[in-house]
Design a protein around this nucleic acid. Sequence first.
DNA 1: GCCCAATCTTTACAATGTACAGATTTTGCG
DNA 2: CGCAAAATCTGTACATTGTAAAGATTGGGC
Lengths: 208, 208
Amino acid sequence: MAGETAREAYHHGDLRDALIKATDAILAERGLEGFSLREAARRAHVSPAAPAHHFGSSAGLLTEVAILGFEELARHIEIEGSAESATARLKQQAAGYVRFALAYPGRFQLMFRYDLLLPDDARLAAASELAKVPIARTILALRGLPEDAELDAPTSATMLAAWSTVHGFAHLALSGKFSKLTPEAKSQHLLDELLPQMLDILWPEPKR
Amino acid sequence: MAGETAREAYHHGDLRDALIKATDAILAERGLEGFSLREAARRAHVSPAAPAHHFGSSAGLLTEVAILGFEELARHIEIEGSAESATARLKQQAAGYVRFALAYPGRFQLMFRYDLLLPDDARLAAASELAKVPIARTILALRGLPEDAELDAPTSATMLAAWSTVHGFAHLALSGKFSKLTPEAKSQHLLDELLPQMLDILWPEPKR
DNA sequence: GCCCAATCTTTACAATGTACAGATTTTGCG
DNA sequence: CGCAAAATCTGTACATTGTAAAGATTGGGC
């Protein structure tokens, strides 16, 4: 009991967390295509069939990781400092979205791969919805509405516009469609140059 | 020689085309996740190892299908009728892009899955670039430039904006992020309602 | 102290991509 | 025409994957 805790822990303890962390490590090291259920089990020092009892299937484990991904995405989107205008705040949030996608490409791609996730998981849907809240607040401010206003048609259309723009940018970047630069310098150039240029076109500063 | 041509054809003939068509059929019937190299070989009535000689690997076959996909995408983007304004033309092209993605989700998803395609295929890169040409023309018209003008920084940033917007919309739609509707009615609603609403916000008609 | 349920292992099976060696067909060339 | 060489396809084999089924082992509640 006071023996080697690591050995003991794997035999009964927090396998669930260990598998989630192993999966996250695989996504970070080898990307989404480098993941396999058996590899995650290997890293947790358990048999290939062990994960099934905790997550049901591979999709169950990946869904759990995707939920954590949406929560982390929400954190990246939330605004830290003060923002002068609503459009400035929107641009900061857009940068946060893209920064997350570029920093954790495996996680990000997983989050939108419905074929790898449980299709009707309520917690996943909730996490996905929660990640939109910070943007919704900014959109309301952008349209001069109070923070707790209802999401009318033009507001949700504006949200859709912001979401699509930033998501398309991130997805195209990860698909290698902007790959004329080296991978190292690419992220900074995308975030510091291309993204602001694009956002200035779609959301020009109203201050004349 | 004058015998049953179908049997003969499979034994020597146009296996390459047959495999491409089989793959396209799988993508249409079962989606991208329903594809396997062996299933394509099965549909072409050849052994599992046969495709290798024509395409090298699974990625080689899929790359060929993706090239056809980009060519078809370009056709969907090209404008058919006359367009009053440049922004109207842009919106028609955007609708063409989304219509393609919704009509051929398997093909569309494949085209941006770098992990399934040959990473350095020149013909694939060329087809991808060619699909942007119709949009580039519209962007130039939008900015009041002649059709053969060079793509300066603001023009390419505007292109990036248009591309990201429409691609993000299509990708989010296919990821099931808008799925509060039935799949049948969804496509029409997306094309007729949501997409125009979004585009009107990002590209308002200059005509006051 | 003991039984039951939770947890993990072992074994097994069907599928997949693809390498390798051989058969068969077509083609090029004298 | 004849024949060798090249192109094309088959058969077999192997490592890897997800997961189902049944058995072993552990821990908690009474």
